[in-house]
Nucleic acid binder design. Structure first.
Lengths: 210, 210
DNA sequence: CAAAAACTCCGTATTTATACGGATGTATTT
DNA sequence: AAATACATCCGTATAAATACGGAGTTTTTG
């Protein structure tokens, strides 16, 4: 039986080592390296080019999980990333799926699901549990509201509004007339479906627009 | 040699079990239970009343770490809580210290520091590493600005503003004059040291006031 | 290339927010 | 008992935001 070679990438040392201990008992799994950030992962990948899977955390210093996924995709490496994250927001899940993750597990997953995901992914199949899939679907519907819908200028204006600048100040700063800024503001308020600036800033802050 | 009896409370199963595996090698540590939330912790404490230490995560369902600390304090149990969190914000650290935590560790702590903390705490000593202490001190200076300084009414008004209500609407809702609300708004703006409502909502959102 | 989206600008009227400076009763804390 | 902080209210004036409705110029994209 061929063993599954995997690397664990997580900046939490306790989690990383704990995971290693957990996986020891599975004889078909062979942990080739533990790393604490994306950069370290890539240098390990040079030493172990035939690694099958990387268990990847999203939040890491230097180079986070998203960047890693992007890089892996562009390099067309054979390694299959499984995301292990504590974030169950559709936001994150969708992003990872789009960027080529083979699986997305929460950190409160049980061991059975973890090993199941590892084995499925090692066979080239993708694994997304029912809860995760649901989150992603729910997310898609509201997704349209946030990132995509604001133009660059609108985002810029929104940012300046949130810093306490008035319409006039923003106009001066951006070398346009106040009317332009008023229009932008009005459009952003309409797009985010809020009543006024106060609610706008709250909503923008909730969906990480500022 | 007397063993240190401890319970692990963390809603991330992988982390919980991983931690258990990690601690196995230390013969002076005896894990009596693993739980995934605060409620479960207290029912386990009834079964194991002479537990020495609980390794406690902050973010948990049903009853989070903060609530647990509060409860432990009011019940005056002998068990000593060690917080293991991924949050390194002074906010969290200070809160835990105030609520009676014996130690605060980040999830990226190494094993040596973990066991060191466990052993020190088991002797009744508190352990806060240098980084953690520093964070807490930095936090204290800005702490005054946030929670303590807003009155109940001011917090209430702030909340309503953030929901997009106008001064007039808030006045009607709270059965007071618009002037009162205007004053509240003005005072909150002054207290949080911002220029206007937009920046106010942003800051309030940043420091979790809304 | 053509269509769609984004960016820019204009006017007017109304509503809100902000900046002043002051005052009083109540509750809490020392 | 005295001091402090809080909630409440008042007036005036200015600045800013919001609601209408319209239109020309780029830029992006299919």
């Amino acid at each position: 039986m061929k063993t599954i070679k995997l690397i664990i990438a997580d900046d939490h040392e306790l989690f990383r080592n704990g995971l290693k201990e957990l996986l020891k008992k599975y004889k078909d799994v062979n942990i080739v390296a533990l790393v604490s950030n994306g950069e370290a992962l890539f240098s390990q990948l040079k030493k172990h080019p035939n690694t099958d899977i990387v268990l990847l955390d999203i939040t890491m210093p230097k180079m986070d999980g998203f960047q890693v996924l992007k890089q892996l995709k562009s390099l067309k490496l054979a390694i299959k990333p499984i995301i292990i994250s504590m974030h169950d927001e559709g936001n994150y899940i969708a992003k990872c799926a789009k960027k080529g993750a083979y699986s997305y597990l929460l950190k409160n997953t049980d061991q059975e699901e973890l090993i199941k995901a590892i084995r499925m992914v090692s066979l080239g199949k993708k694994y997304f549990g029912p809860k995760i899939s649901e989150k992603m679907i729910n997310y898609m519907s509201e997704q349209t509201i946030s990132e995509n819908i604001l133009s660059k200028k609108e985002k810029e204006v929104l940012g300046l509004i949130s810093e306490g600048l008035t319409t006039k100040e923003i106009a001066t700063k951006l070398f346009v007339s106040t009317r332009t800024i008023e229009t932008h503001r009005a459009n952003v308020i309409k797009k985010l479906e809020v009543k006024n600036t106060a609610e706008l800033i709250k909503k923008a802050s909730e969906i990480n627009l500022i």
